[in-house]
Design a binder for these strands. Structure first.
Lengths: 332, 332
DNA sequence: CCCCAATTTGCAACCGGTTGCAAAAATGCT
DNA sequence: AGCATTTTTGCAACCGGTTGCAAATTGGGG
């Protein structure tokens, strides 16, 4: 049914090896046979079967891209950058949606069955064990948006969540807020834990500051909205550091529904600087995560591992910056 | 390096065929040898190589998922549903980002090189020619969110955009708006053209109604915002049908920036009912596209084509419905 | 024109599986 | 137990490529 190497070889009157070499970078073929082969291939509409060749070369150029949050618009940008970046390196993303998967084991198995050359785990909520499972299976893996560790056992690239927490606390205190709170994502996510740690440490170090915390059940609008609604029913803080923009937007929505205003009645600062944060009807002050840099570096890492599979894992954390918009009261 | 069929066969003391058959649904193996094989496989940590087997079976279970708009949050939901749906059928999405790709040809070539079993084109802005290229290459293809045709040459599933345009016009007229306009997406997109057609026809059929139209340069927030800003500088209409929610939200933002209010000064109705539309600070009246139904049907179609590659292409259009929120004045 | 080195070519084995076919083993029946 | 059937098994060829190796060709120098 489909055109193979052999068909081209016969038409061109050369051996199968000659055809194979014509389509292999840096193989030894004379111009004359190359021309004959190309001509025959064009005539037949031949294109090499990447999967068949992967069998001997051991390279599929397939990269597993694993994610588990398809409700946070932040990840749309992440997918955009990852797919483009990988494509530019000649790599192909095999997308794995872990949201419904009960058993992450089976995803590991599946990706190994497809002999992916590497895996990128793009999630701040997945346990480090997940990425580790690939390393144990000797599949190159990078955990993007993962947690910093001094001696990581897999490559990690992301931000210093603890530092972000501190930065958020300092920002709120500088603005004169004295009763502040952390409204985090799911308590089990390492990113949430680290952001909480940094925020609470800094806040508690200031004797004038009163700090509390609570957690939304997911990095999603609804979860943020639900949690803030609950908070508003008792005695809310003056300003909240939300563990993520989409949670902040949910919180904003709850605040507005309660006929309160931001930043008039409650201040908000988010994290991520996702696209919606700059929408005028949201206008959220937030901490920007340098997503393109994180993703570029992740891709570089995984590409490097294809050549050099046994390099020591590294952790690279990119600095974040405050993006001033309209959800906090101005500096006094 | 990795465990193969042969290793398992040797350890189990059976032939390679026996091992292969153990892992093939419905093959003839006795319980005794199956047990031996499973035991040996477990001991070695063997798992079959899906790509190698695809060589003989002709099935990779890989499905190309092609998209070209990673700025519209609508597509995050689309990816979520597609990846889950495909996974549930044992199919694997190979994601292709066409936004940057200058040459769609090369994507077709690439997907053929990976011998995908089928392709889903998830875009309302891609030309039908693109999907057709796969059909010409005898690769099963479904165009989701594509344009209706009486005798389609590829399977299409989506909505009746013309009917949506009519529905929007009727809704605005029912609300008593008399000077209405269409603010579409890119003029070249078939979806935009059809929505415009339906909207303008219905509006022009009513002698009391005054109708105009213009186009945003993309299905994106910024494009909607820019276009509405421009419109506000001259003599704006009383209400706009925006070709997409994200455009509507951009327009909303422009309107609020101009110190005007929705629906007080200007009415808005969108299309898609994406997640943000229900955010309280947006609260957009819109036309809901039954995305899950569209996607389920797309997957069913592509799965059916794997069995039955030469079925006649069909077009299936799902009905849409108005979702009432707060961006239009109430019925008189 | 001949010889030697460098380049190009084809053969054949291999990558990790599947499968038609015939032989071997198991089963059912008398 | 003996025979006919059915089931299970292994052999070997094949899927569509790649690659080490030795033979064939080319090119350069004398």
């Amino acid at each position: 049914m489909s055109i193979t190497l052999k068909d081209v070889a016969e038409l061109a009157g050369v051996s199968r090896s000659a055809v194979s070499r014509t389509f292999t970078e840096g193989a030894s073929v004379s111009d004359k046979t190359r021309r004959k082969v190309i001509e025959a291939a064009d005539a037949l509409g031949y294109h090499p079967n990447a999967l068949a060749s992967s069998l001997t070369t051991g390279r599929t150029k397939l990269i597993g891209l694993v994610a588990n949050n398809f409700h946070n618009p932040f990840f749309l940008e992440v997918f955009d950058l990852f797919t483009r970046g990988l494509q530019d390196c000649g790599l192909r993303p095999l997308l794995v949606n872990l949201s419904s998967e009960t058993d992450p084991e089976s995803s590991v198995r599946m990706l190994r069955q497809y002999s992916v050359d590497g895996v990128i785990v793009a999630s701040s909520t997945l346990s480090p064990d997940f990425a580790r499972a690939f390393r144990d299976a000797r599949v190159p893996v990078v955990h993007s948006f993962g947690r910093l560790a001094e001696t990581p056992d897999v490559d990690v690239v992301g931000i210093d969540n603890t530092a972000c927490g501190r930065m958020a606390a300092e920002t709120l205190i500088d603005r004169g807020y004295r009763r502040i709170a952390f409204l985090g994502g799911p308590e089990t996510a390492t990113s949430t834990q680290d952001r909480a740690t940094g925020f609470l440490q800094t806040a508690m170090a200031d004797p004038e500051v009163d700090v509390t915390h609570s957690f939304a059940s997911a990095y999603s609008f609804d979860a943020g909205r639900v949690e803030m609604t609950k908070l508003l029913m008792t005695d809310p803080a003056e300003a909240y550091f939300c563990g993520d923009d989409v949670i902040a937007i949910g919180a904003l929505s709850a605040i507005q529904s309660a006929a309160l205003s931001v930043p008039g009645d409650v201040g908000l600062i988010g994290l991520n600087d996702m696209e919606m944060a700059r929408w005028e009807n949201i206008d959220l002050t937030t901490i920007r995560q340098p997503v393109p840099a994180i993703i570029d570096h992740s891709i570089d890492l995984v590409a490097a591992m294809l050549e050099q599979p046994d390099a020591t894992p590294s952790a690279r954390m990119f600095p974040c910056e405050i993006v001033e918009r309209g959800s906090l009261r101005p500096l006094p």
